[in-house]
Simulated scan of single mutants.
Amino acid sequence: MASPTSPIVWDWPDPFIHEVQVEPRHIDDFQHTNNVVYLSWMAKTAWEHSKALGIDFAYYKRLNRGMVVRRHELEYLAASYEGQRVLVATWITGNDGRLRLRRRFQMVNAETGQTLLRGLTDFVCIDIESGRATRMPPQFIVAYRPTARVEGD
């Protein structure tokens, strides 16, 4: 990855980073990346981070437990355009060790270092077979421990 012309200032240290390329299919009528694409990048980055932590869907199925989205919050700060590279960073900022997990996200233009979006996703642990909220298994408590401290998360 080429160095950005401006240094990247991450909201918290040591993010997990997933790089994406803005493709023609991501562009809307305004000629910039459609807002729902950012949400899909957040979801993909969360999964990539989860897999890097050793938890994929096969692991979820073995435990009959999974983390599912309860709520998203996105703040769009600047547009991205076809051909640009976007760095999608995530941190786990909350895990109550029972039901809830929070991730925060920051998307940055890889060339300029400009922050494009800040967001968060709240997850809840479910029993996959019943779909009902259930206590997190010990494996999730350990693997999904917070990677950044955010007051209130």
Rank of each mutant, 00 (worst) to 15 (best):
I126L: 03
R98I: 13
T33A: 06
R71G: 02
M136T: 13
E82C: 04
I141P: 01
I92A: 07
Q139I: 14
D14W: 12
V150L: 07
A2Q: 10
D11C: 09
T134A: 15
A110I: 04
R100S: 09
Y144K: 00
E111M: 13
R62N: 11
T115S: 05
G119K: 07
R98C: 13
V88L: 06
N35L: 11
E151S: 08
T134E: 13
I128P: 07
S50I: 10
R65A: 13
W10I: 06
A133H: 12
D14I: 08
R102L: 04
T93P: 05
N109D: 03
V37G: 00
W41T: 00
Y59I: 03
L117P: 03
K51N: 12
E75Y: 08
N95G: 01
K51M: 14
L101W: 02
V36W: 03
A52H: 11
P4F: 09
L74I: 06
F105D: 08
G83Y: 03
M42W: 11
I141N: 10
M1L: 09
Y59E: 07
N109E: 01
P146S: 07
S6A: 15
F140G: 10
A79Q: 02
E75N: 10
P137W: 11
R25F: 06
H49W: 08
R104V: 04
D28P: 10
Y81R: 01
S40K: 08
G83F: 01
S40G: 06
Y38G: 06
T33R: 05
P137F: 11
N109R: 00
D28N: 11
Y59L: 06
A52T: 14
Y81A: 02
I126C: 01
S50K: 10
I17G: 12
C125Q: 09
V68W: 02
D153T: 03
R25Y: 11
D29G: 15
R103E: 12
R149D: 12
Q139A: 15
N35F: 14
S40N: 14
M1T: 11
L99H: 09
H32G: 09
T93M: 00
R100K: 12
W10G: 10
E129A: 15
V108A: 10
L74T: 05
P24D: 07
W91M: 14
R102A: 07
L63S: 15
R98S: 15
L74P: 00
R103M: 08
A78F: 04
V69G: 00
F123H: 05
D122F: 06
